[in-house]
Nucleic acid binder design. Structure first.
Lengths: 239, 239
DNA sequence: TGCACAAAAATCGTATACAATCCGTCATTG
DNA sequence: CAATGACGGATTGTATACGATTTTTGTGCA
């Protein structure tokens, strides 16, 4: 169950330089979570995940622990790992935290904004538009989170960026559970408005737009009626 | 090297209910870090740590990965784990983040403050006083961080509390590296002032005191001249 | 039929064996 | 004598074996 797959692509046994094997598993699972391919509560059996990615349980275990630390999976002793399923309260707290941190980061990004960075953001929003147009809701949501992450990267504050990474990951689960609106157009509008502010290097405007954007997201949640849409694991994984 | 030590204290093979073996290692190392028993940059050999705690490398490795995720240790591929050594920039960012988050948490704590919680805080500050009086600088610093953590617990916001845990851990390393002042009396004064505000349930005052307290700490750092005081590992560990 | 209990299967926790990698040392050579 | 390259020891990366715990299944009895 460990020497399956990867027939030839490992000419250099360790790829580029970073990215150990467990990081690849982490990335694969994260991706699936971001795109809502696997639902909260899904069991992640060590053997099963290991077989899918062609690695031993040692690697899988390491990856699951990493994900547990980012609160994306929950590990129950002697019972296994599950995709986390944030409580309504946790959902509320996550967006409260985003409401405090992200506006601050938006101002920092506006102050440090370069033309290149602007161009990157612009391309990102276009991708977002495209995905939404095609109707790929999972990908659109994933990209929407990516927009916030890119802003954090531009701000260049590693500590805040780390927090935002964590918060956005958890937001993905929260949205899977508690988001009912069909349209994500408000999302698109806010992002567009943010772009305008960034183009003008208007830090105050960026901060305010970000704040209200996150309040919007927060109030778009219906914390009393969670969705549920379990899927098969094997189908969900492999990019 | 794995069946050494622990001759009798494991009547129930798994202690209370939680606290797996690797958590104990994490706690032991954290404690040593908080009390400045091990200096930033110290190498943490898997075998060595395993022997000290009487566990196998599997456990140690798991613990080190957990600590790496909290940024307390750095893992370099094929080279090993080291106590993290925050850069001046990172130090600056950590205190900037604390300056944003902790004042907000202080207001939340003030609003939810109960008489019991107040009593707990009071006892904590007395411990702090005692440690400082005896001259146990390591313990005093550790307790000082604990004060901030207790406030976060009282605020009852798990997301913020998690962030603050992380930030305070890293602050401990930062202080070990960049703190030069001998006295920690300003620390004590600020904590006392905070207590007063909490007693009055004065949220606005608590927020403001917390903000200026963190600015104080931040400005007490000398980011251009790091300290260094390496110690032996075996001596530092075991409580 | 339904419940209780026991045996079996599945899954996780931990230790250990082996492979891969890195670092220091020493010999060789220009 | 300095620089370079190869060897050996030490340390980490990964896989796998074994024991412990949980979950499920199957059977007997009320």
């Amino acid at each position: 169950m460990n020497k399956v797959l990867r027939p030839s692509q490992d000419a250099p046994p360790n790829t580029t330089g970073l990215a150990s094997r467990s990081d690849l598993v982490v990335a694969g699972l994260q991706r699936a979570i971001f795109e809502h391919k696997i639902a909260p509560g899904t069991k992640l059996s060590e053997d099963e995940v290991g077989e899918i990615f062609g690695v031993s349980r040692t690697i899988v275990r390491s990856a699951l622990q990493a994900l547990a630390h980012s609160q994306l999976v929950t590990i129950e002793k002697n019972r296994g790992a599950f995709i986390a399923s944030p409580s309504p309260r946790e959902a509320h707290e996550v967006f409260e935290a985003r409401g405090l941190i992200e506006p601050r980061v938006a101002t920092m990004a506006a102050k440090r904004m370069t033309d290149e960075a602007l161009e990157t953001l612009r391309m990102h929003t276009e991708e977002e538009h495209a995905a939404m147009h095609v109707g790929d809701k999972g990908k659109a949501l994933s990209l929407s989170g990516g927009f916030h992450l890119k802003i954090a990267d531009i701000a260049g504050h590693d500590v805040f960026t780390g927090f935002i990474h964590s918060l956005i990951s958890r937001s993905s689960l929260i949205i899977a559970l508690y988001w009912h609106r069909a349209d994500t157009t408000c999302e698109s509008h806010s992002h567009h408005a943010l772009m305008k502010a960034f183009e003008r290097r208007d830090a105050a405007a960026a901060e305010e737009i970000m704040r209200s954007h996150i309040v919007d997201l927060h109030s778009g949640l219906n914390l009393s009626s969670p969705n549920n849409a379990p899927l098969s694991l094997a189908d969900a994984l492999r990019p």
